[in-house]
């Protein structure tokens, strides 16, 4: 079931009369829900990423997660999926590769998110619920993809012609090849440490802003390509305007990140970059 199909199903669920009755009943248990007449109103607040409504979003998210855990119903899952649809869509479109069909990827993202919701430790994680839901979903999705990829590599080919080219530097004891610069950026699973750092330090900047920086600067996707991929239905003029807007937005985000990550700057580096870690130090001394 693709993400678009999920969205259509959500509309049906949120309009159902039984959903309204259940919502009215549940409002008596949760003060955060009692402020709202309809699930659509809840959806509006959950979709507002401004700092002003952060506390209300947090309370609503926790109320919905509680209900889904204690009295599971398709309404709560529908509301949470509708509210987090932009995040799930962004996560889905950061995944490349042929290990899973596109529809399987959509289903993986949706089902993983709901698993995370149902197992979320509300008693242990008492704040930043939205951030933890997002991080946990990302981690599980990427772990599943890595496992899927590893399983495919381990399957022996039936035909000799399926074997990869002979690579003597892969033999044990062979000298390690010099590290080459890759034109394409690292895969999404290689960026998780950076993503976690940015999310922990700069979540308040907004998920859209962070995603843009991660996609274009950490993973190395060109901004033009990102715009073409994310706004495929826009005409060229509109895409150009979007490109310019995102370029300015990214510059502002980077300027703010520099301030937030200032304490990580390497005091020994003239350029002010991060201090190299152990393996990177060795490579640096080898002239890499």
């Amino acid at each position: 079931m693709g993400l678009q199909h999920v969205r259509r199903a959500l509309k049906t669920e949120l309009r159902a009369e039984t959903s309204m009755k259940l919502f009215d009943e549940t409002k008596k248990r949760h003060p955060a829900l009692a402020e709202h007449e309809t699930p659509l109103s809840v959806l509006a607040v959950l979709g507002d990423e401004s700092a002003r409504r952060w506390a209300e979003r947090e309370a609503l998210t926790r109320a919905l997660v509680t209900e889904e855990q204690e009295r599971p119903h398709s309404l709560w899952a529908a509301l949470l999926l509708a509210a987090y649809y932009p995040m799930l869509s962004r996560l889905r479109h950061r995944i490349y590769g042929n290990d899973l069909d596109p529809e399987d990827l959509d289903q993986l993202v949706v089902s993983t998110f709901l698993e995370v919701v149902r197992a979320f430790p509300l008693a242990d994680q008492r704040d930043r619920t939205a951030m933890h839901l997002r991080q946990m979903t990302q981690r599980r999705v990427f772990r599943h993809i890595r496992e899927e990829h590893a399983a495919r590599i381990l399957i022996a080919p039936d035909d000799v012609s399926d074997l990869p080219p002979f690579a003597p530097d892969a033999w044990p004891g062979a000298p390690k090849p010099r590290r080459r610069r890759h034109k394409a950026g690292p895969g999404p699973v290689d960026c998780r440490d950076v993503v976690e750092l940015l999310t922990a330090r700069a979540a308040h900047l907004g998920q859209d802003q962070l995603d843009l920086v991660v996609t274009t600067m950490v993973r190395g996707e060109r901004l033009r390509v990102y715009v073409e991929r994310t706004f495929p239905d826009s005409d060229p003029d509109e895409r150009d305007r979007i490109y310019q807007r995102l370029k300015r937005q990214r510059s502002r985000t980077i300027a703010r990140l520099r301030g937030l990550l200032a304490d990580l700057r390497c005091p020994r580096s003239a350029t002010g970059g991060l201090c190299p870690s152990g393996p990177e130090k060795e490579e640096a001394s080898d002239g890499q």
Partner: peptide, 14 residues
């Protein structure tokens, strides 16, 4: 305010 919130939710969903 409630009407505005409902419209925002509806506009987002659709």
């Amino acid at each position: 305010r409630e009407l505005t919130l409902n419209l925002i939710g509806l506009f987002e969903l659709y």
